[in-house]
Design a protein around this nucleic acid. Structure first.
Lengths: 223, 223
DNA sequence: CAGATCAAAATTGTCGACAATATCCATCAA
DNA sequence: TTGATGGATATTGTCGACAATTTTGATCTG
């Protein structure tokens, strides 16, 4: 999937992408303060562009800002994770419903092709699956909804937070084969143009997914 | 309802609120270009604060920005309206479900009180209802979800766009009494702590609501 | 020692100037 | 007339300096 390469055109763009990546990957740790001057020397740009980058991150819910005080990276928590997945369930459920109505036949074919590629990987045991494959699957369906609001809220916003949770909790986990089956059923419903079923299956898939990552979170906090 | 008075603390805040209001109310017309210098003289602040205000509006989907070109107020369209309501259906449906689980008993009591006040108004024929009452109803349920993502996406984001459509299409319309009944049923489900039903009813309410406003849009475009 | 007070230091907010880019418009060639 | 070219104009992007606010921490007081 030619992942709509986000190419920075302005300094603020570039700084925004770098900063976002550093936050998601944990290079800048969750809950830490973002000093404008410090970051401006680190990324070698003026404070103004750092400010703009931070403002954009605030819009993605990766950073919280208080007037006259400054910005902090969000802190990860169990309740935060649950709330995030509740929103995902609602939005991606709707996305699956709309995808069933709006995806072109060739897009559906491509989606099925993607799935059988994954199947081969899983069978031959390579399968790190989760990260690359799962993301790709969800992206295609969200884009297939053809709903701009849905697309931007999820892809520009929530997904980065989801990834932040995954990365920082060290998700490589199992859940490969069962998730694969769930994906297969969703695609089947979309291919049948059954939006109602696609929504139900997608919501359930995300619910399971939440339970899985939540279990990890609890394990981690016990250690 | 003590509507969490958004009080501007910084110039950028104030400019953001003013600009947002001017856009929603149609003082600055849909689709028009936002010149930074022009606005900075109009609101009597520097270009930097105008830029920040515009960036925030971009995050709320009220304006669109292109690098090195500038920002424009979004244009309203039938498909845009449909897409907006699809997202509302998903998010507010989930909000109603969560509200049924998470609202305190006193919050539910207050919500029922609000409804019977509205009932008196409707019966005595005052009833402009739609704007004030409807907004209040939806706000309470979204807040009752206790889900921060849901709250911010809807209240800081989509609702302003919804209002923009309503204002600019001159919605004062009928649909008062039937909407009232729909509200009543949703509240009943929440009072019964039946999240599943609350979600279904809320989704249907929003669907009807969309059909109603869509009809107006078609009428308007015919004129 | 706990808490209040206040000046110093650090950080964010705002501004005007300059640089980089896009847009406009007159000129020219086919 | 149409379309291309290139320079003038206007607009956005970036910067460093100053203003306003918060935070720090040293001193004083009970």
């Amino acid at each position: 999937m030619q992942m709509a390469a986000e190419s920075p055109v302005t300094h603020a763009d570039r700084t925004f992408f770098q900063l976002r990546n550093d936050i998601v990957e944990g290079v800048i740790s969750a809950g830490s303060k973002l000093s404008e001057t410090e970051l401006s020397t680190k990324y070698d740009v003026s404070r103004a562009v750092v400010r703009e980058a931070i403002n954009r991150l605030t819009a993605s819910h990766l950073v919280e800002r208080k007037a006259n005080v400054g910005a902090r990276v969000v802190t990860l928590s169990a309740t935060g994770l649950v709330q995030l997945y509740q929103v995902r369930e609602a939005l991606e459920g709707m996305a699956a419903r709309l995808a069933a109505e709006n995806m072109t036949q060739s897009e559906i074919d491509a989606l099925q092709g993607l799935l059988s590629d994954h199947f081969d990987e899983v069978k031959s045991g390579e399968s790190y699956y989760q990260e690359a494959g799962d993301v790709d699957f969800h992206y295609r369906i969200v884009l297939g909804s053809k709903n701009n609001h849905l697309i931007s809220v999820l892809i520009d916003g929530l997904y980065h937070l989801v990834r932040m949770y995954r990365v920082q909790l060290g998700m490589a986990g199992p859940r490969v084969t069962t998730a694969f089956d769930e994906h297969r059923h969703v695609v089947q419903a979309i291919a049948n143009r059954d939006g109602e079923l696609a929504e139900i299956l997608m919501r359930r898939h995300i619910l399971y997914s939440k339970n899985n990552i939540e279990r990890k979170l609890i394990q981690t906090s016990k250690r």
